[in-house]
């Protein structure tokens, strides 16, 4: 197993139903270790201890939204350079463009395909680490 292999994902999502689907898709199908946080605040509390290799975050959330959460996580020294992906239903071209400027490596559109989500994330990870 290479040290670059993606194992640990911090998943920030406020919708419990989507958390449940994504958990099966990422852990069951993808074999990742996933820490699920229901809000940006929770992510900030858990992130350092969990030490994720990748942050996967929803965009529209009550309280801290995705970009605010990511900016706050980036201020934690351990997560300053952790790659991040937004997973969002805000998929209009100008919205995707805006999200990319917030410093994520990719934007995945919701609804995602749970059978291919893990592979999609692995492919993005691979492209980044080639």
């Amino acid at each position: 197993m290479s040290s670059n292999e993606l194992r640990r994902i911090l998943f920030v999502e406020d919708e419990a139903d989507i958390q449940a689907v994504a958990q099966v898709a990422l852990e069951g199908v993808g074999g990742f270790t996933v820490k699920i946080c229901s809000s940006g605040e929770e992510a900030l509390q858990s992130a350092e201890a969990f030490a994720p290799q990748l942050i996967l975050s929803d965009v529209m959330m009550p309280g801290m939204d995705g970009p605010t959460t990511l900016a706050a996580l980036r201020r934690l020294p351990a997560l300053a350079d952790t790659p991040a992906i937004f997973m969002t239903a805000k998929v209009q071209p100008q919205e995707v463009e805006q999200l990319r400027t917030d410093g994520v490596i990719e934007v995945i559109a919701k609804p995602f395909d749970p059978m291919t989500l893990a592979q999609q994330i692995k492919d993005i990870w691979q492209r980044r680490h080639v």
Partner: peptide, 16 residues
Amino acid sequence: HELRTPLTAIRGSLGL
């Protein structure tokens, strides 16, 4: 967004 959120859960669950 509002339509896609429940659709994500429905399609996701059924897909799995």
